[in-house]
Design a protein around this nucleic acid. Structure first.
Lengths: 342, 342
DNA sequence: TCACCATGGGACATATGCTGTCCCATCTGA
DNA sequence: TCAGATGGGACAGCATATGTCCCATGGTGA
């Protein structure tokens, strides 16, 4: 498929440029709708007029609609993005990187969005939308219990979940683990609530204080409210989570100096589900928490990992030495390049 | 893949038209090179200027070259045609018909060119070029012995064989069967000679008179020159042949009224390798000839059948109830439609 | 409620590319 | 040698794309 486009380009040059330009326009509209010509032009570094011609064309073919408050993506526009994604990935060479990363990390499949979320904050949002697309295609129909984690990346995913996801599905969201010391805005409970809201689904919170001893967790496990949620987690068939850089996570969760020192000593590079691992994928420290562990992913129908930014490359690369080979990864070019260039 | 193009078209309308126009331009150049703008314009029902703009573009990208005697296809142009073929087949809907026909007839694969060779004589030539493309991709490297049949279709294939076929191959052509009463221009010996010439290969003729008795064939088989050729035929690993309408073939070969009556009585619809069969693929009459039979195809590495025109539909459909499922078919839209519409 | 700002739409000159239609010098092949 | 086909030049007309304004308006936050 890769070579094919070379010839298309030779026969109708600049068709691909135009296609890519309009595709990125569609993406940007989806991300910021409702939005006006001038904002779009600025964001995409195009002139107002070219944006306008493109919009007029897309209006003709019904992919966008113009309202007094700005441009909106139509349902057809949504579908177009979904259908054009692999094609555009081909054109930009991302497709090649996707297959490379897939084999390199042993993934079920892989989606790479362009950019680097360490540099531009909107890339995280694009990853969120990619996650939404993926879920729409991969989430089994019917009832599902979705275990999710917290974090800024997961919050971005939650922001973009659309109601169309719930068309043939009844979704229940549940935090994969108890409160992990994150700030309220990005903790799993908040993410759950937001996802449930967006998809007209249900959610169940898991309010847990910081745990310091195994004793406390054993007694807490008896609490009816908590036991019920833990039971739900045990029945989750879908997991969406992120992978974090070890030190960044330790700092964000304000872990004690003692624990941090342990992490350093044991060369922890990444974290997922509260488990810290070194570059060989060996778990070197577990945050004492209730809920899902990496090993529970085996029994899931669908596992989606979302992580981007070159700073997380080492973490992600190490992480995928652990989980079953059925995980989907959604990442960005910054991270992908960092892993592949080695 | 089929749906994808709908969206490409929605995002960049009329690019596909242009792509198709230029592709057909390339095809026409290949067919008639060296050729001038005006001839091309006339043949493709375009204006001179349009052809010129397209040619200029193709010149820029190096797919064609302009000489004082006309336009030539470059090597890149050749490659472009080859690589764009499946894509264009998608766009025109031919691809869908190809897969349909493939499953319907139980083929290894199938190439359909647009048009109907019963209506336009140049369609046969296009099929020949398609055959050339297919051989270039499928013919095993190294030495091959290619058994070919006669007929106008095979003659068209022979016309278009190109030297590039022989890049990594040494080819020997041999008539699959003895002279079948065809006129010299289209008989297998001539076709062989022409193919060998085009590919810098060898060929071995098989000159046989009309045979009327099995006795004669047995004695002829002893003749050293004939025995040698027959031995070569036995070692053929590739076969290229056509499928004919039963009555048309009987007439062309000036078969006796008696035999023709037999064919009618037994409801023969088609012919291949001198074997006539009815609509169920049952062989109802064998021309007493020396050489290859349909059953010998089993041991071949590659079998290509070439037949087009709606009038041959019944014959082709019946034929593919006989041979192994590894045959490639090259046909035209007229024939494909006739089979598929039922 | 009001004011402001971003919105879509209109307008226009300009640039670029495509089209139709000539003519012409030149090359080719019979 | 010569007739016919070749590529290239030229030009006007047309369509589309582009850059740059301005304007009325509607939604939103103060």
């Amino acid at each position: 498929m890769d070579l094919e486009w070379k010839w298309v380009n030779a026969v109708v040059p600049k068709m691909t440029q135009k296609l890519l330009r309009r595709y990125s326009l569609l993406l940007m509209i989806r991300q910021t709708q409702p939005v006006g010509r001038r904002s779009l032009a600025e964001r995409l570094a195009l002139t107002e007029r070219t944006v306008r011609t493109d919009l007029d064309s897309l209006l003709d073919t019904g992919l966008v609609s113009m309202q007094t408050n700005g441009v909106w993506l139509t349902d057809d526009g949504q579908t177009a993005i979904l259908n054009l994604q692999p094609l555009v990935a081909d054109l930009t060479g991302l497709r090649k990187k996707e297959t490379q990363l897939k084999t390199r990390l042993g993934l079920k499949d892989c989606l790479i969005v362009s950019g680097d979320s360490d540099d531009r904050s909107d890339v995280k949002q694009t990853m969120g939308e990619a996650a939404n697309d993926l879920l729409r295609q991969q989430l089994p129909a019917g009832e599902s219990v979705v275990a999710v984690m917290g974090g800024t990346t997961m919050a971005a995913v939650a922001e973009t979940l659309s109601a169309t996801l719930a068309d043939n599905r009844q979704l229940t969201f549940v935090p994969a683990r108890g409160g992990m010391g994150e700030s309220p805005k990005i903790q799993a409970n908040t993410v759950c609530a937001r996802m449930a809201e967006a998809t007209n689904g249900h959610f169940q919170a898991l309010y847990l204080p910081e745990l310091s001893s195994k004793l406390a967790s054993t007694s807490l496990r008896q609490e009816p409210a908590i036991a019920q949620t833990l039971d739900l987690i045990d029945h989750a068939n879908v997991a969406i989570h992120c992978v974090g850089d070890a030190m960044a996570m330790a700092k964000r969760r304000q872990m004690s100096a003692e624990v941090t020192a342990t992490l350093v000593n044991r060369h922890a590079v990444g974290e997922a589900f509260g488990d810290f691992f070194d570059q060989n994928g060996q778990i070197v420290y577990r945050v004492p928490k209730l809920g899902l562990s990496i090993s529970d992913l085996d029994r899931m129908d669908l596992v989606v990992a979302v992580a981007g930014g070159h700073s997380k490359a080492a973490a992600v690369e190490a992480y995928f030495k652990i989980p079953p080979a059925k995980t989907f990864l959604i990442t960005d070019e910054g991270l992908a390049d960092m892993i592949l260039k080695k």
